[in-house]
């Protein structure tokens, strides 16, 4: 084909095609180049929709809201406002506290389930995995809504208990507080915790467990000596997978959290909505993300130190 092009009267066009062919050949010859070429569209999308927006958000956090517009001048007023008003940092702290609660509860509840899945369930394992995964993929909103109707003042639990005569007054503590928030979130993120733990348990070489038994361990000693340490990567991943997204959640607090269950996400959302102070919202977002990231890095560093000991 090249030859024919070159032989044609349109010699210049032929030359161009030759050049193109050269580039193409070079491209095909280097697997590295080909690999990155396949990656480039995705990297571009992630760059454009992830990195650039985060950069703009960061910049915006140093601007100021001026009526309907932004004043694009550098100022740290938003950050000063954050540290100046104790309510923000207190809210961030309680948000992180709640998320830690949720992540801990989720992981503790998920571990036996994952263990059961990895070591006890032999037949129909795929069915169990699907059963665990399906609720996770169904609408987050509907799952939260389900808890709202379950825990509500006149909800399923209260009306159910009253119908069978166990209580005469609806239980107050069920909805619109931190308890309902933790329960709902624990439910919502269950699969995210189970799957990483399950994978890390499944990956454990069974002969390591036999070796522990062979060396004198009973079931309990073996669990703490081998199984748990070897599944720690899964536990940590699960913990982070649950902890990080829940810090920024604003739907669940709004639907089931009530006034006592407000989280930092609600404030950020308000700043971008009714509050109409985007730069302040951006600053809150930046502070929250930085705090979370630092917390995660410090934790991981600490865990690594512990393990090297």
């Amino acid at each position: 084909m090249i030859r024919r092009l070159l032989a044609s009267p349109a010699g210049a066009g032929g030359l161009g095609a030759l050049l193109l062919e050269r580039v193409r050949r070079r491209f095909l010859r280097s697997p590295q180049m080909r690999g990155y070429a396949l990656l480039s569209p995705t990297l571009f999308v992630m760059l454009l929709f992830l990195v650039v927006p985060l950069g703009i958000l960061f910049t915006l956090s140093f601007w100021k809201q001026d009526g309907l517009f932004f004043a694009p001048a550098f100022s740290i007023d938003n950050y000063v406002a954050f540290f100046g008003r104790i309510i923000y940092s207190k809210l961030l702290a309680t948000s992180i506290g709640t998320s830690l609660c949720v992540a801990t509860a989720t992981v503790l509840l998920a571990y036996p389930m994952a263990y059961c899945l990895a070591f006890r369930i032999k037949r129909a394992k795929i069915m169990w995995l699907i059963l665990i995964t399906v609720p996770f993929w169904t609408s987050f909103l509907l799952r939260v809504f389900a808890w709202k109707i379950t825990l509500g003042y006149q909800g399923v639990i209260n009306s159910g208990l009253m119908t069978i005569g166990l209580i005469s007054e609806p239980l107050q503590f069920l909805l619109y507080n931190r308890f309902s928030l933790v329960v709902t979130l624990t439910h919502a993120w269950a699969a995210f915790a189970i799957l990483p733990i399950y994978v890390s348990l499944e990956k454990i070489d069974r002969s390591l467990l036999e070796a522990a038994t062979d060396l004198g361990d009973g079931p309990v000693a073996r669990f703490f000596g081998v199984t748990l340490p070897l599944s720690m990567p899964g536990v940590i991943a699960a913990f982070l997978f649950v902890f990080i997204p829940t810090v920024g959640d604003y739907v669940t607090p709004r639907l089931v959290g009530g006034t006592g269950g407000i989280m930092i996400g609600n404030i950020i959302q308000t700043m971008f909505g009714r509050g109409n102070n985007w730069p302040m919202g951006a600053a809150l977002a930046v502070i929250s993300m930085t705090t979370i990231t630092l917390l995660v890095i410090v934790t991981l560093w600490f865990i690594r130190k512990m393990r090297q000991r």
């Binding site: 390591l208 036999e210 522990a212 038994t213 004198g216 070897l230």
Partner: peptide
Amino acid sequence: VPANRRPVNMVFQNYAIFPH
């Protein structure tokens, strides 16, 4: 006598050295 109380020990085929 369960495995963990037997007076025997084993060298496993893949050695089963605890990676942690």
